[in-house]
Design a protein around this nucleic acid. Structure first.
Lengths: 336, 336
DNA sequence: TGATTTTACGAAAACGTTTTCTTTTATTTT
DNA sequence: AAAATAAAAGAAAACGTTTTCGTAAAATCA
C-alpha cells in the first residue's frame, strides 16, 4: 500500500528503528544517514501513519471543539481563533455540533473519553442541566476548557466575558435612553451566561428604581417560529415594553423581524440592544446597538489555555478563569 | 491507565479476542457471553482505543473539511450540512481553515495523505492556481469531493450551484431595474465560480447590448481595507457605475459601508445585488437583493456524495457533478 | 597497547485492536 | 456408540510506529 517505515528501511538497507530515529532527528543517527533517509522519504512520498504513532505515543495531536452550532457569528469567530492557535501548534481540530441538544453533548463526550483527543474545548448547550458527563470526562484526565457557556456547578477552567457588567450596562443604556418598561429576552434558564446577563439586567433596573415585571422576561426556545410568536404576542399588546435587551443575537434579529412585520418603529416605539457579533450591525435598519464579545479572542484564549494544560500537566492544580471584556456599541436602535 | 480489552478479558475470565468479538456482536460468541461482556464493559466504562482500531482496520471513521474560512455565512452553513450527515454516519469531522492561502491548503493536503481521514471535502482558496497537490491526494485513493469552489482543470466529483445562470440573472435583474453601467466585484481570477459568475455577467450585458467596460470589473483582494479603498475610488469618480453585482457577500457589505461613508444612496444612485447567505439581508438599510445559494444543502450533498464514494469504492469510475440551484431574491437594494 | 568511552546502528517489545486460524466442547447424525 | 457437524472460545499474527536496550565498531584515553 502506501510507503511505510518498513519499505523505507528496505530501500535504504537500514533497520526500521534507525529510519524512525533519523526522521525524528535523533542524536543516535549520523548526519549523513539522516540526510539519506530524508531524501528517500521525500522520494517515496513517505507520510507517517498517524494512528500507529498515536497508539504508541499516547498522543493524538488533536483537540476537540464541542459547540452548540457553527452557523452563528459568535461561535464561528471563536472557532476561527481556536483554529488559529491549533494550527500554530501543529494540532488537528475535531468539531462537534450539539445543536443545543444535551443528548448530543453527552454522546460526544462519551466518545471523546476513548482518548481520541488530547484536550477538549466546550461551550454548553442551552438545555444542559446536569454536568455528570463533563465531570466524568474531567476525571479521565483529559484537559477540558469551557468557553462562554460554562457550567456553574463545576470547578473547571473557563474563558468568559464580563456578562454581569454587560447586562447591567446594556440595561442602564436603555434606561438612560428613556425606557421604562424593559423586556429581557433570554435563551435558557440553565446557562450561567443567561443568569449573569439577567442579573445585570435586574440590578440595573433596581438601581434605577424600576420594578422588574416578570411578564417582560421572556424565556425563549430553540425554535425560531415559537420565538417569533412569543415576541409578536408581547409586542402586540397595549401594554408593551419600550425597550428590549436581547441576551443573544438571534433574538434581536427575531425582534427586528417582528417589528418589521407589525410595523413597530425602532427606536421610536421600541429601543433594542443585543449581544451580537453581526458584522452588519451598523448596516441594519436601524443600525443595531450591540454588546459585542471578543469572540475571536475568546477562541484564542481558550485554545491557548487548553494547550498550556496539555503541555504541562504538572501545573494542573491551578484552575484558570479568564474573563475578557465585551464592548457596548451604541447605534441607532437605542437612540433617544 | 484506562480500561482496555486486556483488562476486560482478565475481569471476565475470557480471552481478548472473545471480548473483542463480543463487543462487535460477532456470531461466534454466545448471547449470554455477549451480555456479560457488555455489562462489564459498561461497568468499567470501557471505550475502545480509536487509534488501535484505526490502525488495524485501516479506517479512520473521520473525514476532513478544508475550507477558506469559517467566519463566513456560506461556509458556516455548508459546514452545518456536512456535520449533519457525518454525525448521522457516525463519522468524525476534522476542520482545516486555509484562510485563502494556498500554502496552507497544500500543507493540509500533504498531511492528509498520511491516511488520517477516509475522505476529504474541499473548497479551494482564492489563490489556488495549480492543483498538483490535489491531484496527488486524489492519486493516493482517498476520496475527494469539491464543493462550490471547484478546480477547472481536474476531473473530480463536485457539488456546485448554477453560477453562470445566477450571474446572468443577477446582471439582467440590474439591467431591468434600469442600470446601464454595471460593475462586477470579483474575488479572484483563479476560481471557477468567479469565472462562471462573470461569464454570466458578460453574456447578460451583451444580450442586452451593453458594452462591457473593463474598468468596472474590479478584481478585489483578500484584504478588506484594500477592497474598501478600491470600491471607494470607483464610486467617488464622476463616471461611476449605477449598479453593482457583487460575486461574494463580503464585497456587498464593503459596498454598503462605502456608500454609507460617501453618502451614496442605494438604490437611488446605485443598485446592488450580491451573492449572499446573510440572514439579515432583509433587515439591512436598504434590504439587500441577493442570490442565495443553498449552502446547507451543498454541505449535505457534498458529504452524502463523499460517503457514497467511501462506502463503495468499486463504483468509483463514475464522476458525479451535482449542481444545485441558487435563488434570486429581489429586495430594495435593486429597486427601480 | 589495552582499557574505556563514544558513536551509530539493530533487535525486539510495546501500544490496543481486529481477524484468521485452531482448538475445545457440545450437539446432532448415522 | 462412534462419527460428523456445529457452536463457542482462544492463540497468535498483524497494523506501523516509538523507544528501550543491547552491541558492534570506532575513537579516545591511560
Amino acid at each position: 500500500m502506501s510507503t511505510n517505515l518498513k519499505l523505507l528501511a528496505k530501500e535504504l538497507g537500514l533497520s526500521i528503528s534507525s529510519v524512525s530515529k533519523a526522521l525524528r532527528d535523533s542524536y543516535e543517527i549520523s548526519a549523513e544517514t539522516k540526510k539519506r533517509v530524508r531524501e528517500m522519504a521525500d522520494k517515496l512520498n513517505y507520510q507517517p501513519n498517524p494512528f500507529a504513532s498515536s497508539l504508541r505515543r499516547k498522543k493524538s495531536i488533536t483537540i476537540a471543539v464541542v459547540i452548540p452550532e457553527i452557523a452563528n457569528n459568535f461561535f464561528a469567530l471563536a472557532m476561527d481563533g481556536i483554529q488559529m492557535v491549533a494550527q500554530q501548534k501543529g494540532y488537528h481540530v475535531l468539531t462537534y455540533l450539539t445543536h443545543e441538544d444535551h443528548k448530543n453533548e453527552e454522546s460526544t463526550i462519551q466518545q471523546l473519553k476513548g482518548g481520541r483527543v488530547d484536550g477538549v474545548l466546550l461551550s454548553l448547550c442551552r438545555d444542559t442541566a446536569d454536568v455528570k458527563h463533563l465531570a466524568s470526562l474531567h476525571e479521565t484526565g483529559i484537559p477540558l476548557v469551557f468557553f462562554d457557556r460554562v457550567p456553574e456547578t463545576m470547578e473547571c477552567p473557563t474563558v468568559t466575558t464580563d456578562d454581569y457588567e454587560s447586562g447591567y450596562k446594556a440595561t442602564e443604556h436603555l434606561i438612560k435612553a428613556g425606557c421604562k418598561k424593559i423586556s429581557c429576552l433570554s435563551l435558557s434558564n440553565y446557562l450561567s451566561i443567561t443568569h449573569k446577563r439577567m442579573k445585570g439586567y435586574e440590578d440595573a433596573l433596581q438601581h434605577h428604581n424600576i420594578k422588574l415585571d416578570p411578564k417582560w422576561v421572556l424565556q425563549c426556545t430553540n425554535d425560531n417560529a415559537t420565538n417569533l410568536a412569543m415576541i409578536t404576542k408581547m409586542l402586540n399588546k397595549k401594554d408593551r415594553p419600550d425597550g428590549i435587551f436581547a441576551t443573544v443575537e438571534k433574538l434581536a434579529i427575531s425582534t427586528y423581524y417582528v417589528c418589521q412585520d407589525i410595523k413597530l418603529k425602532i427606536p421610536q416605539q421600541l429601543k433594542v440592544i443585543s449581544f451580537s457579533n453581526l458584522r452588519t450591525a451598523s448596516l441594519l435598519n436601524p443600525s443595531l446597538s450591540t454588546i459585542t464579545q471578543p469572540a475571536f479572542e475568546i477562541g484564542k484564549e481558550s485554545a491557548a489555555l487548553l494547550f498550556r494544560m496539555i503541555e504541562k500537566k504538572t501545573f494542573g492544580n491551578r484552575i484558570d478563569k479568564i474573563v475578557l471584556k465585551s464592548s457596548l456599541i451604541e447605534r441607532d436602535s437605542s437612540k433617544k
